[in-house]
Amino acid sequence: MLELRLVQGSLLKKVLEAIKELVTDANFDCSATGFSLQAMDSSHVALVALLLRSEGFEHYRCDRNLSMGMNLNNVSKMLRCAGNDDIITLKADDGSDTVTFMFESPNQDKIADFEMKLMDIDSEHLGIPEAEYHAIVKMPSAEFARICKDLSSIGDTVVISVTKEGVKFSTRGDIGNANIVCRQNTTVDKPEEATIIEMQEPVSLTFALRYMNSFTKATPLSNTVTISLSSELPVVVEYKVADMGYIRFYLAPKIED
């Protein structure tokens, strides 16, 4: 028996919007720790890891570990039927091939049940070791989204370079090239407007902008984004999901031949 009640149901709606472009089908895993997912895109270049910790739910019942295969487009269709202020509850019986999404309006005057078929998915799980990153950049998520969007109108790839001067995003294409430098800036009115650069050593890596732009679909989840870079490691682009967890996107770099 599984029953997860999330008062801030809009978080789940935003999570689905953030990952459904990248991944088509995925297994959602439930355990005592929380509700999680790890899935790669079809070309195995990008990976999304989601964790919503059990403590973040108003009610969290998971009698035994359960893996539920879902088509994310179909989950998104279901969740779009929930109001932004609705409380969302996920329910599944042991051995059932369906999951039920229950939507309750804030004043309890409307209650809806949407039952969705589960599917069997052969997913490949990758072990992601804890790593020391050479540079960690924390910046406003809207600013990062703007940079990725702007650069993708010029080129297909972005070079992200961190030096003591700041973080530089560069691209080049047929019509020309572009460089955007963001310096550390902590003298802002609100902490979420700050750009904070922690650098152990300079790092410069090249990534496909198409994936970066896909990651920025998570922007509505968090005012800030954290970009962790290390030579010869996939970049990690992390958005916090309120105080209950995170979405982390991993993207393999381009390799010089």
Binding site: H44, V45, L47, T157, L233, P234, I255
Partner: peptide, 14 residues
């Protein structure tokens, strides 16, 4: 000239 890396080059199946 550069080629796109794949995640399996960095992370092993668990």
């Amino acid at each position: 000239k550069s080629s796109q890396g794949r995640l399996e080059s960095f992370f092993k199946p668990s």
